[in-house]
C-alpha cells in the first residue's frame, strides 16, 4: 500500500514497492494516457513529471514516486488546454498519436524552465522520445509555437495595470 500524489490528488494504490509507476497509473488508476513503449527507458512513451522533472515512468518505482508530486498527461492542464496541447492541434502533430502524451510531457518540462529554447535545445531535450510515425518536424514547430504563445501570454500579464 502506497500513497501517490497524482495530478494534485492523493491516491492509495496497492502494489509492491518495485512495481513501475507506469503500470500502477495505467492499471490501478486507469489513467491510460501514459503509454508503454519499451519498458527500458529507450523511447519516452511513458514520460510523466515527478516533482516537475520529466521521467520515464517505466523506470520509476512506486516506492520512489511515493510522497512526490506526479503529473500525467491527464493532469497537465484541467481542460487539455496547455499551450503545448493547443499548439499540437494547431500544427496537427499527431498521426497514430501513441507517443504524443510522452512527447508533450517531455516538451512541457523544457518550456517550464526555458520559455525561449533554441532549435538545438529542443532537439537535445526531445531526442530520447521516439516517434515511429516520424512527426518530428511538427513536434519542433509545435514546441516553438507553444513557447511563443507562453511568452506572449506572460508579456501580456506583465503589461497588465496594477
Amino acid at each position: 500500500m502506497a500513497t501517490l500524489n497524482i495530478n494534485g490528488r492523493n491516491m492509495s494504490v496497492e502494489a509492491a514497492g518495485d512495481t513501475p509507476l507506469l503500470w500502477v497509473i495505467r492499471e490501478q488508476l486507469q489513467m491510460t494516457g501514459t503509454k508503454f513503449g519499451c519498458g527500458a527507458g529507450l523511447c519516452g512513451a511513458c514520460t510523466v513529471h515527478v516533482n516537475g522533472e520529466a521521467v520515464r515512468s517505466c523506470q520509476t518505482s512506486v516506492s520512489d514516486a511515493a510522497g512526490k508530486k506526479i503529473t500525467t498527461i491527464e493532469g497537465l492542464s484541467a481542460k487539455g488546454e496547455h499551450p503545448l496541447q493547443k499548439a499540437w492541434i494547431a500544427e496537427q502533430v499527431p498521426q497514430c498519436g501513441y507517443c504524443q502524451s510522452g512527447q508533450i510531457m517531455q516538451a512541457a518540462s523544457l518550456l517550464a524552465k526555458n520559455s525561449n529554447p533554441s532549435k538545438e535545445e529542443v532537439v537535445a531535450h526531445m531526442d530520447g522520445n521516439l516517434c515511429r510515425c516520424m512527426t518530428y518536424s511538427r513536434i519542433q514547430k509545435a514546441i516553438m509555437r507553444a513557447a511563443a504563445d507562453m511568452r506572449t501570454a506572460s508579456n501580456a500579464g506583465d503589461r497588465r495595470p496594477t
Binding site: 494516457g33 500525467t72 491527464e74 496541447q85 502524451s101
Partner: peptide, 23 residues
C-alpha cells in the same frame, strides 16, 4: 481543404483509446 483531423484533439490529451487501453 485542410480541415482539422477529427482524431487529433483526443490524441493530445491522452484520451484516444488504443487496444492496450482496453479495460
Amino acid at each position: 481543404v485542410s480541415v482539422p483531423q477529427l482524431d487529433i484533439p483526443d490524441k493530445t490529451r491522452g484520451a484516444a483509446k488504443y487496444g492496450i487501453d482496453v479495460m
